[in-house]
Amino acid sequence: MERTRYLSEEWAAIAGAKLRAELDPQKMNKASASMSNIYERCSDGVDRFIFIECSDGELARFEVGSGEPPKAEFRIHGDYDTFAMITRGELGSQKALMTGRLKLKGNMAKALRLSSLADRINKVLAGIPTDY
């Protein structure tokens, strides 16, 4: 697989296909939820987002874009560099949240039940050869 630039159109196409192929609805606990990761201070000065929506454990919608993301049950804000470190496996998402480098909006009680699912999504995305 050729390397693509993080959050580019090519990267988004690969990520969407890979998530649809590799996420097992059973392992996703047939969960229905939506989440926006909002990447602040990207290198070109633009804020970008990844929007993920699962329905009954299957990927229903995956979008990468700039500006205001679609309305989601959970919104995670943070610097581009922080998200990049998480995707490269250099920083745990829990630690990023617990140190305030990422900020979560949404029902924390439900987020806890879904945290392992978010980890599975991150693992899939981490398998894409990426330039940051």
């Binding site: 804000h77 943070g78 949240l97 617990m98 140190t99 990422l102 900020k103 979560l104 909006k105 924390m108």
Partner: peptide, 14 residues
């Protein structure tokens, strides 16, 4: 209802 019970935690924004 379940969604009306929220948690706070030592996390950014939470």
């Amino acid at each position: 209802p379940e969604d009306n019970v929220r948690a706070y935690a030592p996390m950014g924004g939470q």
